[in-house]
Deep mutational scan, measured.
Amino acid sequence: MSIQHFRVALIPFFAAFCLPVFAHPETLVKVKDAEDQLGARVGYIELDLNSGKILESFRPEERFPMMSTFKVLLCGAVLSRVDAGQEQLGRRIHYSQNDLVEYSPVTEKHLTDGMTVRELCSAAITMSDNTAANLLLTTIGGPKELTAFLHNMGDHVTRLDRWEPELNEAIPNDERDTTMPAAMATTLRKLLTGELLTLASRQQLIDWMEADKVAGPLLRSALPAGWFIADKSGAGERGSRGIIAALGPDGKPSRIVVIYTTGSQATMDERNRQIAEIGASLIKHW
């Protein structure tokens, strides 16, 4: 067993022997301040990774656009098919120029040779490549099948209805392509620590998230040296922004954090800054 596999296998073990965790309302004060600064709703939840206990939450059962955070769930569904012998990570998928959609920095470079399922998941999570996500959605049967996968996990809230990039439209009061912070946090925890996926697939999923290259201005910008984070960000229309993450000190994750916002007129930089400040408060009061 590799060191990384050992780390993920012992996530519940280490967490069980940690000192009790206590909620700190100071972080919620910052979440509410972010709402004021952005002029928009902000949803927040913080779960203990081992027990699933909610440590703090704000608007945990209000719907927010998922945006690209759905790509972690998508690759979880792909990995479940791999575990069941219905898919192979090494299978190569070929596609054409007509398949390319807006923001496809990886797939646009491989029109000639195609990409493997493993490479597509890596591109979808680490670079948020939209064509990679659409190609992977095709392998599982489309958005409705991802929703069905989530329902089978016990998540009857999260739903995907459309493809990239239309799913980022974020129309107010439109339930399409949305989740709730509580539902997303619980589902992410199941994917990373539950028995739904094999140990190898859980490790692969967290490795992809740990290698995320496009979430630097968010929670990662607030992390002290030595902290662990595996995350996936999302951005959408109407001032929408979000991030889902597993993080913790001492090089291992111990909490799940989900943050979503929508309806702001603020710039992307300002949305990023507010999420980073929430992260800084979380870490300060850990």
Rank of each mutant, 00 (worst) to 15 (best):
H24R: 02
H24N: 14
E26L: 14
E26D: 14
T27M: 02
L28Y: 08
V29T: 02
V31R: 11
V31E: 14
K32R: 02
D36Q: 03
Y44R: 01
I45E: 00
E46K: 09
L47S: 08
L49S: 07
G52E: 01
S57E: 12
S57A: 05
F58W: 00
P60A: 06
P60D: 09
E61K: 00
P65K: 02
P65G: 06
M67F: 12
M67W: 09
M67I: 14
S68K: 01
S68A: 00
F70S: 06
K71C: 02
V72C: 08
C75G: 15
C75D: 15
C75I: 13
G76P: 01
G76K: 06
G76E: 15
V78H: 10
A84V: 10
A84H: 15
Q86I: 10
E87M: 04
R92A: 03
H94Q: 14
S96D: 00
Q97R: 15
V101I: 09
Y103R: 08
Y103W: 00
H110C: 00
H110V: 04
D113Q: 00
T116H: 06
R118Y: 04
C121Y: 00
C121D: 00
A124G: 12
T126P: 01
T126D: 14
N134E: 09
L135T: 12
L136N: 10
L136W: 05
L137C: 15
L137V: 03
T138A: 06
I140P: 12
I140Y: 13
G141R: 03
G141N: 13
G141F: 05
P143D: 03
E145V: 11
E145D: 01
L146R: 14
T147S: 09
T147R: 01
A148L: 14
F149N: 08
F149D: 12
N152H: 11
D155Y: 09
H156V: 06
V157D: 08
T158N: 06
W163Q: 12
E164C: 02
P165I: 01
E166W: 13
E169C: 14
E169V: 09
I171F: 04
P172E: 10
D174G: 04
D174F: 02
D177Q: 12
D177R: 09
T178M: 08
T178Y: 15
M180G: 07
M180F: 02
M180D: 09
P181I: 01
A183E: 07
L188R: 13
L188D: 14
R189Y: 02
R189Q: 15
K190A: 15
L191E: 05
L191G: 10
L192C: 09
T193E: 10
E195G: 05
E195Y: 00
L197A: 03
T198E: 14
T198H: 08
T198A: 13
S201D: 05
Q203M: 07
Q204H: 03
L205N: 01
D207W: 08
W208F: 15
M209Y: 13
E210G: 11
A211K: 02
D212F: 06
G216I: 05
P217W: 04
P217M: 09
L219Q: 13
R220V: 05
S221I: 12
A222S: 12
G226S: 11
I229E: 09
I229C: 09
I229K: 02
I229R: 04
A230L: 09
S233G: 09
A235V: 02
G236D: 05
R238E: 03
G239H: 09
S240Y: 03
A245K: 02
L247R: 10
G248L: 06
P249V: 08
P249L: 09
D250S: 03
I256L: 10
Y260K: 03
Y260H: 02
T262Q: 14
T262H: 08
G263C: 14
G263R: 14
G263D: 10
M268L: 03
D269W: 07
N272Q: 12
R273G: 08
I275M: 12
E277F: 13
A280K: 15
H285Q: 05
W286P: 04
W286S: 03
